[in-house]
């Protein structure tokens, strides 16, 4: 089976700094994969290259077997990659439903249409998506007054609007309360399972990572040092050394999650 995302020897230099060096991995269909690593490991650079914000110095990225290396973000989106940001980027002057409708208008390539009223277009579809993330009740509220957790859920609905095959989530639970984190990730896990979407996410909260990711990759100083299941990664001595400072901190927590 062709992987949804195939990354080969992805490399990026900033001047003399080797931010990401020859990183290769696959994301299988339906897989929930986490990319973790200490601050400055190159996670964001890696992500920005996948989404087209940064052009790689070398290497290639394939989506469902087609090369997408170096394409601008909007083209990568068109080919079926949804994205949520670490700092939410919603349209403040629109209602919750209109935010989703906007993505649907783009999905249906009606951006230059000047005849219909936009607030009526794809309203049903938008409501269905909002229902999926549990935001239907708030559909007509102004986006500017939403609570942070709700914004995150709205972003998820927007990312689902064009039926992506892959979802890239940059620190999806950053800045949220612990209970909200688990709830959001559970929601994400349910959605992707139901729709067969693959997810690649970065995350600092190890509770979230070990509770939800099928596979975990560890990045350190721009290089991939581990790629495997939670158990494999946890027992990897190299990971323990750079990430956990040599201890086996998470062995105890594992029992509490199990």
């Amino acid at each position: 089976m062709t992987p949804v995302l195939r990354v080969e020897n992805l490399t990026r230099y900033f001047g003399g700094l080797r931010a990401v060096h020859e990183v290769s991995f696959d994301v299988a269909p339906g897989e929930l994969k986490a990319l973790i690593g200490p601050n400055g490991a190159g996670k964001s650079t890696c992500f920005n290259m996948l989404m087209g914000q940064i052009t790689p110095s070398a290497g290639k990225v394939e989506l469902n077997g087609e090369p997408i290396t170096g394409l601008p973000p909007r083209e990568i989106w068109r080919r079926g990659v949804g994205r949520t940001f670490q700092i939410t980027g919603t349209y403040q002057s629109m209602t919750v439903a209109e935010n989703v409708q906007m993505a649907l208008i783009s999905h249906h390539r009606r951006l230059f249409s000047m005849l219909p009223y936009a607030y009526r277009l794809y309203r049903e579809e938008a409501m269905a998506l909002l229902d999926v993330v549990g935001m239907a009740q708030q559909a007509d509220r102004a986006c500017a007054i939403l609570a942070y957790g709700d914004l995150k859920r709205l972003e998820l609905a927007i990312a689902l609007a064009h039926k992506p095959t892959l979802l890239l989530m940059d620190e999806p639970t950053a800045g949220m309360a612990p209970r909200e984190r688990i709830a959001l990730m559970q929601l994400t896990a349910d959605i992707v399972k139901e729709r067969g979407i693959s997810v690649l996410f970065t995350e600092h909260d190890m509770d979230v990572v070990f509770a939800h990711a099928h596979h975990i990759m560890v990045l350190n100083r721009g290089e991939l040092i581990a790629d495997g299941t939670a158990a494999e990664v946890r027992s990897n001595p190299h990971v323990q050394e750079v990430y956990l400072g040599g201890g086996t901190l998470y062995a105890a927590e594992e029992t509490s999650h199990a």
Binding site: W77, T90, Y91, M94, A103, S106, Y117, A118, H162
Partner: peptide
Amino acid sequence: IMHSPFGYALRATRDSARQAEATGI
């Protein structure tokens, strides 16, 4: 036109150019 899809797309670019680019605009 301000109320049409094009007007909305224009407001989207104003509100968050990054999000707009990331959703195909």
